[in-house]
Design a protein around this nucleic acid. Sequence first.
DNA 1: TGTACATCAGTGAACGCGCGTTCACTGATGTAC
DNA 2: TGTACATCAGTGAACGCGCGTTCACTGATGTAC
Lengths: 201, 201
Amino acid sequence: MRVSRDKAAENRERIVDTASRLFREKGFDGVGVDAIMNGAGLTHGGFYGHFGSKDDLAAEAIARALERSDEKQSRYANLTDLVSEYLCERHCADRANGCAIAALGADMARRRDGVRRGLTKHVRGQLDRFTHLLGNGAAERRRKRAIATLAGMVGALTLARGVDDPALSKEILAVARDALGEARPAGQSRGRRRIFHRLRP
Amino acid sequence: MRVSRDKAAENRERIVDTASRLFREKGFDGVGVDAIMNGAGLTHGGFYGHFGSKDDLAAEAIARALERSDEKQSRYANLTDLVSEYLCERHCADRANGCAIAALGADMARRRDGVRRGLTKHVRGQLDRFTHLLGNGAAERRRKRAIATLAGMVGALTLARGVDDPALSKEILAVARDALGEARPAGQSRGRRRIFHRLRP
DNA sequence: TGTACATCAGTGAACGCGCGTTCACTGATGTAC
DNA sequence: TGTACATCAGTGAACGCGCGTTCACTGATGTAC
């Protein structure tokens, strides 16, 4: 039965969101059009009224996930907090709503150009943000630190998720959190962390 | 036609090796039994004489890839060289013969217990090796460094492979190589940077 | 504002291809005498 | 050592399920008068 244009637009959004989550949770080939449509409260037949193919949806769903990541990260005023949230156990356990790079990394690299271009833009954006948040020091050095930080985040989350043993998983997260979050004004102690973050003007 | 027992055993090995490479290159769902058998110079019908299912082969193929990784890494006498080789452009371009964690990371985390147990063992082994190679300093500090190094390696390779722009890809590899390889005997100069890292007591 | 008709979002059955898996068969290997 | 038979690794056709995709249909929405 027909549905109002607004409602149809809503449905489309919900399909993209649902796919974005399911793909991250189960991988591209781990979810069918059927599951996505059901997840969005619809039936599979209507799918091709919204998208040209499952692949087209995949591209949109990834773009959506990356956007959401950007929005989330733009709320942090310092890198340590951002890193801590990224490497927390909740994020580790919740693949579906987390970082698309960690959830789909290797798969994305095998996808077609549109997806990889989106990923590249996202990575550049993240590096710029990190470089900015790092604040002090020469730009070149901050950029290097930004790259190392991003790589450490993605790798640590990948490892923590892949490993079987919860204790090892937690250890990886904790150590990486500590190692990567240390880009703070010199002289400030870290450890149990009695941290005081001053927002830069 | 029948084949000698030795030849059959050889064929089995070749199937596992081929699968190990193809899975890393194209992902689990990106290669069929057909392609694997052809890659090994056989036809698909014989597959089930060797393996119970494609999934069983996948488990063996991953285990094989991780073993090969261990063998390769055991040849390095210092962490800097190991990191440099891991983060070189050849490795970045050659997914099929490279690190299984970076090539299949997210997928492995979704696999059944056997695979994840193998991965866990491999990660532990790598951390022990890295801790050992780091040489000086307190054991606890070295282990932390080992974890941060492994995470940085995996993440940097994932990013470098995912990104579209060769220049950015190279930059990521170079920066990570530099940042992670710095655990060398104090006083040794390295590259652009005349940095002297004193290990804290 | 109300009525009549066209549009079209969503439904569910059906199609068809790909791929994992099975099976009857082949012919070389391995073995018993 | 040679011969006869049993075994079984590998072959290629075929099966069947899952899943992406198509399509005729429904009935509510949108529009023209």
